[in-house]
Design a protein around this nucleic acid. Structure first.
Lengths: 213, 213, 213, 213
DNA sequence: TATGAATGAGAATTCATTCAT
DNA sequence: CATGAATGAATTCTCATTCAT
């Protein structure tokens, strides 16, 4: 059969992307086979090559798309305010929300960098760097204004991002914690970590009290 | 020739282990081939099977060895004292030292869990769990004594371990930071993070001052 | 869009033929892909099937067309005269001219016979045989009249055709030799080869003198 | 099964070479598949890669081996004498003998150059060039001594080699002609072609008379 | 203890071909 | 007349693994 009724390139590509992220997150990029991927999507392996130049090319495409999504979203969602504390809160919230929402993408983006060809690696790392720079900027501002106290803004960036990103490793949508609480808990820990003077909003304190009760 | 003069099983096995950790850290477990590994060690691929039952069996052996090493060492090195703050400091120091020293092992242990067969996975995760429990225990003690203030000891464990383990990702032996400073910086951040009242030792404050000067 | 303005089947077919000969000559029939061919022509691969029944069918069509062209042309251009020497000169001239002009077609016709399906092979070889027979006829006539002295007309045919056709392998339109000289040189060699008593015309001798001067 | 009883690398490689030349001559390099080749040899396709780095690498190896064989043999067999006529006779004899003996190798070497990667192509063409140079050298010597009369030694080389090599295309071991006669016939034609004053030895004349009787 | 020959299964990728539109 | 989506079969090549020696 040359073409299934109503087959549509854009839909097929999206289906491949979704299934690929899934499979890569599950098994790892190297361990995933295109056969498997094709079967999930319900197409023949060869068809993947209409949409991606190669298995490796697919990985880059996926990672670039994800990082651009993050950067674009932050661009839109970031608060107008200049206050570092407020901005940090917003960033934590944004990061956790997007990292639990697009959990598999994040996982893949963190694990599979080494599967990239050198040129692709540089491209992806450059995008990731832009994301890291957002946080570094906030921390540096806060250090200047005295809102934060960290030994080194860059290292703190790594530390905070590692902490926040780690959430995706164990967080379970259907577990005992809701996303709201998760954000609260991490906000408190991060603010403490960067030595913010006001560690928690009243709302957070209340939430914390409830938990420890 | 059946045996080179002075060839020695124990040495061969160790050479395989070292080369394997190296290669897996570089390329990932799935991407590493036994041919490559054998070539590095200077043996034939078939010879690997004298020491490990299979490629997957080698991974378990490597991970188990590493985790046992960590647990044993902590057992030996942990302070006698019961003071949570002191114990936390010791743990941070231990963790960073062992994680920069055996950097590649740690990396592998974090990245390649999903390459394990289910039974092996459970075995390795159980060992890792014991390591996590050390930190959780310290944090819970500290919460009880009022030394620390975290919303949730388990989550804080994940957060702190993610933060600390992340060091291995970017730390460079020959970079601008020495291990001593690294430990100081992270100690401060972790202590802040868990809401320890005394955030830094005088030594650390001095180091921090130097840096911000 | 179903049809570009002014798109024209006959033109498309000719464009495919030209590009196909080109590509087959360059890479070989098996190595050429229809994708490549389509791309050169600026169409989609599927479109080729409007003009040729299959890849193999295209090859036959190309070869048959070429051989018919050669036979038709000779039919038109051959001299009226019966003199074998004159006819042989005319044939050499014709062959070299058409083989340098349609160099790629000739190359393909010589190289790709084995890519044909058996039935197609027989058909094409029969046409080629008719072309060979022209030369064999001339040589046999010449042997009868005493104009030529060759051990065997059929073998001489193969030898002369191999010699002449080999020109296409190395001849370079923009090289040191013009076509006129090329024909002269080969005429002399062929005439010597078949033991023609008069080896060269005065014009050829002059050309040869110029070269050896 | 890991290894058949008495399996032997050197034998396996030779078997692959023989079968490969056979198949390439039959179908063409591109059309031959490694599956087919392996099946003929009675091994698995993957085993071929113990002996050749790739399909393309196998082709180079085959061609280089063949050309080196030709060059080595001529080195040994060439006559001591300086007489161009004698040397030319020896070369014709050598060429036809080796080209009917190793017919398939020759065919492959002539047809499959374009299947080589650029670097390999240059290497093989350089070797072929050395072989051509042998004939060119003989012809130039003969032109100097007045033994031969050709318009251009290089072009005559191409012409003569094309003629001689063409033999492999149609010659049939079990056909009406023996190799002895074949050499005689071609010797006469070549000598005529290069304008050698003594066109044939008495033996050849006798053979020619028999045929024309 | 180790080699080296070979396997067999499966990997990514390519390609001629089909056909609804 | 032509496209563009897709197929399905085949291709080269890789790799963990086996085992006689």
């Amino acid at each position: 059969m040359a073409r299934r009724l109503g087959s549509d390139g854009a839909k097929t590509e999206e289906a491949i992307r979704v299934a690929a992220i899934d499979l890569i997150a599950q098994r790892g990029f190297e361990a995933m086979t295109l056969r498997e991927l094709a079967e999930r999507v319900g197409i023949q392996p060869g068809t993947i090559y209409r949409y991606f130049p190669s298995k490796g090319g697919m990985l880059v495409a996926l990672l670039v798309e994800h990082l651009n999504f993050l950067l674009d979203r932050w661009e839109q969602e970031q608060p107008d305010a200049a206050d570092p504390l407020l901005r940090l809160r917003a960033f934590i919230d944004f990061h956790i929300r997007s990292h639990t929402l697009r959990r598999r993408e994040v996982f893949v983006a963190n694990m599979e960098l080494r599967s990239l060809a050198p040129a692709d690696y540089r491209r992806v790392v450059a995008l990731r760097r832009r994301y890291e720079d957002i946080l570094t900027g906030i921390l540096e501002d806060g250090m200047r204004t005295g809102a934060f106290h960290v030994p080194d803004a860059r290292i703190a960036t790594f530390a905070v991002l590692a902490m926040l990103t780690g959430v995706g490793t164990w967080f379970n949508e259907s577990g005992r914690l809701g996303k709201r609480e998760l954000v609260d808990i991490y906000t408190q820990m991060v603010l403490q970590c960067v030595g913010a003077r006001i560690a928690a909003t009243p709302a957070q304190r209340k939430a914390a009290d409830r938990r420890s009760a």
